[in-house]
Write a protein that binds this DNA or RNA. Structure first.
Lengths: 346, 346
DNA sequence: TTGAAAGCGTTACCAA
DNA sequence: TTGGTAACGCTTTCAA
């Protein structure tokens, strides 16, 4: 197990110089077809695989990219975003000889340090920045460090290359769906205001309602968790007269919508008869709960694919030119059974 | 961003040889206290961080370990095991200068290739082997490759170092709990038989029931998913007379137990009145569903911590001695509201 | 087309 | 205690 095959062994076996081996194996010109064949044969016979360490040192590249997740463990556990996102990243990275380093930092400060260390010892060639926050400190940091980076679902004007999936169309479809069902009293349960996507979703919701000429209604801050949905349901539904309750509620993600529905049920309010509830994300769990959850379905896997593509492009870019952003297909409304006609006032 | 500070710069600044810088910064003997101070000062002033690439090449170590997840994306998404497991791993790796490479392979064959590649280019110094299968081909593979590895929840006699959390006590407690409630007709919904932990849990269940002098009852194979639980409920409950139905069911994991409960509810059977259902894992979701889920709670985070400790120990072991296995505290029964007294026959 | 040698940034060995 | 230098395994440049 100890002495692995090196380029020297291959050169010796093929009877050529190591530089020729390098050229031949990397499909570079300057090697005759004949010697190339000899070299390839020798390499195969010896089972030669270039050492990443040697390559890294020489090429000044780690062939590794990083993802630092800065959420508390529970959210990560229950959030299906990362599983799919990482899966998508992987499918791009692997064929191109890159690998993904995953780190977790619960504290925001800790997260920054992770990026710093990653950059300092050049462990990665670039990083993903997901779950962007308002005035996210990671952005100036990677800029200062000169660390290639790609942002996920960034706002317009983002100073780094970004991949986005528009939520506007889907949320607008949701509003139209609810309006078409006769709803007039709306409410929105947001995510934590420090995340930009929480604000993005709220804005799309408000804009669509305004365009429909309807009041935006109540807005309560949730936290993307099941418990947050429970709390929101308590705030919006508990102890209120029917006429004071919203009849159509959008929660900023599916998990909180499911929490909301659960608590609503305990309060004796059934969806879709007594009220309509919708989420955002499109997680599998939403197809299992009863009623099944109407939602706006996103595509985290594709987001990962494109993010990885962009990051590698940014890294391998020779000229310093910025890589163009990518927008994947917008998230779309998926109507299930948690939304229905507005209850008739009586 | 381009020219980073190297050990040569530090040596020049401190007016010493690079070998002295290396010794001083790595707290090796052979450097006078005085020069050490000068070197440390120079390093700090220059903001020197040793290059991982240089170190890797010289030390013949990647300072990286790998985790290859071989599940299909959906299971990964909804399985909280990995989030916590990885979180635990991280807390050990980071302070010791190691990082985690995460890869995903849905096909078993693909997974093996990942390990092979990881080993061939020496991208990692060691790997975790989780979700062990019966006659898992990864075990002979890492053995053949000479790749340090740690198994998670391996069976006795496992040829590699392993970290385990015993499920026996918790499942026995569950059986005693159910027996104490007067149940006599049991059923077990397993995980896929190719995973050893599915078998481990079934065996613990059967043994405990046998010891109690009660019939083991029906055993149906599930697949650890919500849908698998639904299917199992269809098989065990649908279209059966009350006297032919089991009254106490253990599902091999929480997710399938929740699916089982959901389907049971649709069939008009309420837990805990009409039947008792328990899971295994202790996921958060189990505290949210109604009824809340009785389960055997595991500690994936601690499993990750100990697995990482063992792996680093194995890697850094100078003598070839095997590292001793670690058993963390057994998983324990957590009684919630999905289990209750056996329904009175009428 | 081929080969020799420098360089990447460390660590480790061996003289001085 | 110090410093010089080989070694790690590759890529790349420059002569031959």
């Amino acid at each position: 197990m100890s002495n692995r095959v090196t380029i020297i062994d291959v050169a010796a076996k093929a009877g050529v110089a190591i530089s020729s081996v390098s050229s031949a194996l990397n499909n570079r010109p300057g090697v005759s077809e004949d010697t190339r064949r000899r070299i390839v044969a020798a390499a195969k016979e010896l089972g030669f695989v270039p050492s990443l360490r040697g390559r890294s040192l020489s090429a000044k590249r780690a062939f590794t990219v990083g993802l630092v997740v800065h959420r508390d463990p529970y959210v990560l556990e229950s959030d299906p975003f990362f599983g799919s996102f990482i899966g998508g990243i992987e499918t791009v990275l692997d064929p191109r000889g890159y690998a993904l380093i995953l780190q977790m930092g619960s504290e925001p400060v800790e997260t920054l340090d992770r990026y710093r260390t990653l950059a300092a010892n050049r462990r990665v060639d670039g990083v993903f920045i997901s779950d962007l926050g308002v005035d996210d400190p990671r952005v100036p940091l990677v800029l200062e460090l000169g660390l290639p980076a790609v942002g996920v679902n960034a706002d317009p004007g983002f100073p780094l290359t970004a991949v986005r999936q528009s939520h506007v169309e889907g949320i607008r479809e949701l509003v139209e769906h609810l309006v078409g069902l006769g709803h007039t009293r709306f409410a929105h349960v947001t995510g934590p205001h420090e995340f930009i996507h929480a604000g993005q979703r709220l804005r799309a919701w408000s804009d669509a309602l305004e365009d429909a000429g309807l009041p935006v209604g109540e807005i309560v801050e949730g936290d993307f968790t099941y418990d947050g949905g429970v709390a929101a349901a308590n705030g919006l539904l508990a102890g209120r007269a029917t006429r004071d309750r919203p009849t159509a509620v959008m929660c900023s993600n599916d998990l909180s919508a499911i929490g909301f529905l659960g608590r609503a049920g305990e309060l004796g309010l059934r969806a879709p008869d007594d009220l309509s509830v919708a989420g955002f994300d499109g997680i599998e769990l939403g197809t299992y709960v009863r009623p099944t959850l109407t939602t706006v379905a996103t595509n985290p896997r594709l987001l990962g694919v494109e993010a990885a593509r962009l990051l590698l492009e940014t890294i391998e870019r020779i000229d310093g030119m910025a890589v163009a952003d990518v927008d994947i297909e917008p998230a779309r409304l998926v109507v299930r059974t948690s939304t229905g006609p507005a209850p008739r006032p009586r």
